[in-house]
Amino acid sequence: MKLLRSTLSATAAGLLLLPVMATAASAAPVANDTVAAATAVTSLPTTITQDTTGATTDSLDAALNANCGAPATNASVWFKYTAPADGGVVADMSASSYSGGFFVTEGAPSSNGSNLVTCGPTTVGFGTVAGQTYYVAAFSDTSTNGGQLVVTFDVAPPPPETTITVNPKGTAYKDGSAKLTGTYSCTNAEDFFSDIEGTLTQRVGRVKITGDFFINPLQCDGAIHSWEAVAFSNNGLFRGGKSATVAFSFACGLLDCAVGYTEQTVQLNTSKK
């Protein structure tokens, strides 16, 4: 009986190990799991598809993430790109089967993360210098240990452009606020990361009334759009008469931002409302 129980126990233990062994066998090692074996990206655009379920994370990921704050850096895999000329690159993994992000370093990543260029979820852009090699890690930012990674490397879009105008006539309301209008345009920028910011000033007697206005997001499709904003002051009330505005439009893309600027003297007409 003791021999039978021992045999049955060994058999049961073996059966329990089978799913674990099968799982381990299905997660094949990933060639570019480490920086030393980074996959070279030799031309743009390039799309790379690979199974990353066997990839791991390590202390280097943790050092880079100290300045990024991703929720997780699981199943990280590495790529490298040597820029043939000055310019910019965009890396995108939105077509992957899992949520993730990127680290980008100038040169091989240092153990303390000091040469980190940028990081972020799903899509990142970075400027390049001719002859410099950049290392890019793609990782899962959840508890999911990888999956089907589809990452595309492409040339960065042209830099953003923006313009802004302020109409020479505005409206002063009975509550002391003032409405301003104008036009703007922006292109090669993200709508949510683009805005209009401005200041309206008016001298009333010996007091200089100042109020701010803000508009976000913008429509950065290259067309000319109208805008309107209401300025409120915390040190007095705007009245009918002349005032001055200083307005900026900010249009930001993956790599940088463009700034539009205008100064305008505005005649505020008193509203009956």
Rank of each mutant, 00 (worst) to 15 (best):
T47G: 10
V90W: 06
T34Q: 12
D212I: 08
T245M: 01
L15E: 01
E190T: 15
N112V: 11
A12P: 00
P157N: 06
E190R: 14
Q132S: 12
S26L: 13
T183G: 07
Y81N: 01
A70V: 04
G241Y: 02
V104W: 08
T57P: 00
G131V: 12
G113M: 00
F102E: 02
S249Q: 09
Q202R: 05
V35T: 10
L149Y: 05
G127D: 12
A13C: 10
D92E: 03
L4T: 10
L3V: 12
T163L: 06
T123E: 12
G240M: 03
V129R: 13
T245V: 15
T181Q: 09
A13W: 11
A85C: 02
E197K: 11
G260H: 05
L18A: 13
T187K: 14
L180G: 00
K80T: 09
N269L: 13
S6D: 13
A38L: 08
S6N: 11
P159G: 09
V129S: 14
T144H: 03
S6T: 11
L17H: 03
T181S: 15
T162A: 14
G69K: 03
N65G: 05
G146M: 03
A24P: 02
A138F: 08
I224E: 13
A223N: 12
T165A: 04
K179Q: 14
D212V: 10
A37W: 02
V155N: 14
R206S: 15
Y261N: 12
N188H: 14
L3Y: 09
R5S: 12
V155A: 15
N112D: 15
G182N: 03
T199G: 05
A36G: 14
T53D: 02
S94E: 06
P158A: 15
A83C: 02
R203C: 03
T133D: 03
T23Y: 14
F232M: 11
K179G: 01
E106V: 09
T128P: 04
G241F: 02
K179Y: 10
Q264F: 02
G176C: 08
L64R: 01
G147D: 08
S59G: 04
T181P: 01
T105P: 02
L15P: 01
N32Q: 08
T82V: 08
T49N: 11
Y134W: 12
F248Y: 15
G240Q: 06
G146K: 02
S243D: 00
V246G: 09
S243H: 00
T123Y: 05
C220L: 09
T23D: 14
A130N: 05
A91S: 07
G147E: 05
A258G: 08
A251G: 07
V117D: 00
A40M: 06
Y81S: 00
V136Y: 04
A25Q: 11
T46W: 07
G222F: 12
V150E: 07
C257E: 06
T118Q: 06
L15W: 12
P45H: 10
T56C: 06
A22Q: 10
V246N: 10
K208E: 14
C220S: 04
A55F: 08
K169Y: 13
S194C: 05
D256L: 11
R239N: 11
I209G: 04
T105Q: 03
A130E: 05
P217T: 08
P19E: 03
S194E: 01
N67K: 15
P158H: 06
F193W: 14
A137G: 07
A22H: 07
L116G: 10
D86K: 02
V104E: 01
V77W: 08
